Amino acid sequence: MKVQKIIYSIALACLLLIGCAKEVQKENVSLAISGMTCEIGCAKTIQSKLSKKEGVLEAKVVFKDSIANIEFDANTTSKKELIAFVDGIAGGELYKASESSAIKSEPSAKKHECSADCKEKCEMSENKMECKEDCEMACCKDKKA
């Protein structure tokens, strides 16, 4: 009889712990990342490190668009923390992340829609969609071809 009471007590405690767990508050963010030079060494490394970060549910880095699409638990981390995390990869000297307005891996996204960061660095505007000759941002690379 004692063993049965112990088992019931443990089961009840487990149910209470599970029932009181915080609900995951999923959010998505798309980050423009500059400083990536290759798909394996840079993009896959960033994706791997992001995937292991606490609060990140899913991370996908698209090298050719210089974009990271991240699904995360807003109860655990924030957009600001994710940007700082990417900026800090490899000692904080290689990559620079900023929030992007478009998620590039979705088929409905415009192929050449640039982030505000790219527009600023490459002197682009709504009326002028030409890239500076020396711009090396991913959003300008495919426009120069």
Rank of each mutant, 00 (worst) to 15 (best):
E130Y: 08
I7Q: 08
E133K: 15
E130G: 09
G19P: 05
K80I: 14
K2E: 11
E93K: 15
K79W: 02
S51A: 15
M124H: 05
K52R: 12
E123L: 09
S9N: 11
F63P: 01
Q25P: 00
F72P: 00
V61R: 01
L50V: 08
E99G: 04
Q4M: 12
K111V: 11
A102V: 15
E39H: 10
S66M: 02
K53N: 06
T37G: 15
A68V: 07
C135L: 10
I10Y: 03
C118G: 01
S98V: 12
I40D: 12
A97V: 07
G55S: 08
K104C: 13
C140E: 02
I46M: 05
I46H: 02
E23T: 13
G92C: 10
G91R: 12
Y8T: 10
K110W: 06
K132C: 01
E58G: 07
T77D: 02
G41M: 06
A138T: 02
K49F: 04
K143T: 06
K96A: 14
K144E: 09
C38Y: 07
K2F: 14
S125W: 11
C42T: 06
I18V: 15
E130D: 15
M124W: 00
S78P: 03
I40V: 08
A145R: 14
M129W: 03
K104W: 00
G35W: 03
I40W: 05
M36T: 08
D73A: 06
A84H: 07
G91W: 11
Y8G: 06
I89S: 07
C20G: 07
A90Y: 08
D134N: 14
A21S: 14
S51H: 05
S51F: 05
L31P: 00
Q25N: 09
E99M: 05
A84Q: 10
S101C: 03
E123C: 04
Q4W: 11
A43Q: 02
S108V: 11
S125P: 03
S66C: 09
S101D: 13
I67R: 00
I18G: 06
E39G: 08
E126W: 05
D142W: 10
I40P: 00
L57A: 08
T77M: 06
S108D: 10
F72G: 00
P107E: 11
